[in-house]
């Protein structure tokens, strides 16, 4: 769909596991894309941006953006980016643009968990982020799904069938793997172990969120927002509903970056 004045603004979020891109015109989202990450973050950026561009007539390539903002851990590797902004600010702005009444975000990505508290204007009020280790992140859930010989989607639904929760107490991903294998070898119900795994990830997010303050409404962003079992475990742990978003929650970082791009382009032309 061609833009009203032919100007497009893009946000490109290069995560550890996926690359995301959102393209805006003056009014709305005109294209988006999500791809698995390449080894080289620059390659991921090129690929995901051109995939999003394909959806728009008259936009030939990444050179045609009026402004491009990179975010995510690979933000410094996004080619042609006019600027880069931390993914924490971008998630805050992305979510705020979808629903300004949301005050708290938990962003669960491939290797990071972040708790973010948002101001009235969509900027960061407070944030907390996991340390070095990837416990309680998407990477951890991927590892766990492999033990169950399931793809991530099937694993994310497994805990929904559980009647009980078997606690998984190890904080460390490697020790948790050992713990889960020994539970499985004792022939405990896989769904209940899966529920324990989801509860442990939810607990980690909860600990981070407590540091920034939990104010309703709350939403979940990042790749793990697609994990149904985790969402159920989080609602239980937080004793709070998770607000749905009108746009794919995995795109919030890229959307925030694109909105930032539109703002920055505006301040240049004015």
């Amino acid at each position: 769909m061609p833009s009203s004045n032919g100007r497009y603004y893009a946000g490109c979020d290069i995560g550890s596991t996926t690359g995301k891109a959102v393209i805006l015109d003056e009014n709305r989202i005109v294209a988006s894309a999500i791809i698995p990450a390449e080894i080289d973050p620059e390659q991921t950026a090129r690929k995901v941006l051109s995939k999003a561009c394909e959806k728009i007539n008259g936009l030939n390539g990444t050179n045609d953006f009026a402004y491009l903002v990179g975010t995510g851990y690979g933000r410094n590797e996004v080619p042609f980016a006019n600027d880069n902004v931390s993914e924490i600010s971008c998630h805050a702005l992305g979510v705020h643009s979808c629903d300004p009444s949301i005050k708290t975000i938990v962003d669960i990505g491939g290797q990071d968990v972040k708790g973010i508290s948002i101001n009235e204007d969509g900027s960061i009020l407070e944030f907390a982020m996991n340390d070095k280790c990837a416990a309680g992140t998407g990477r951890f859930l991927e590892m766990m799904s492999k033990i169950f010989r399931m793809d991530l989607e099937a694993f994310s639904n497994l805990s929904l069938e559980a009647r009980n929760v078997i606690p998984v107490t190890s904080q460390c991903s490697v020790f948790a793997e050992t713990e889960v294998i020994s539970l499985l070898s004792k022939r405990r119900p896989p769904s209940e172990i899966a529920a324990g795994i989801q509860a442990s990830v939810a607990k980690r997010s909860y600990t981070l969120l407590k540091r920034v303050g939990i104010r309703p409404k709350l939403t979940v962003t990042g790749g793990c927002s697609k994990n149904k079992g985790l969402l159920v475990a989080l609602q239980k742990r937080l004793r709070m509903d998770i607000a749905p978003l009108p746009v794919d929650p995995q795109l919030m970082g890229a959307l925030g970056a694109a909105i930032m791009a539109r703002k920055k382009a505006g301040s240049i032309t004015q």
Binding site: D112, N119, D131
Partner: peptide, 22 residues
């Protein structure tokens, strides 16, 4: 662990800048 710290520092600076502005 520079990269993880960098994300935090950048977000912190963005947050502080915004606070100064308002």
């Amino acid at each position: 662990n520079t990269e993880q710290i960098r994300t935090r520092i950048e977000a912190f600076v963005e947050m502080t800048q915004n606070k100064r502005r308002t």
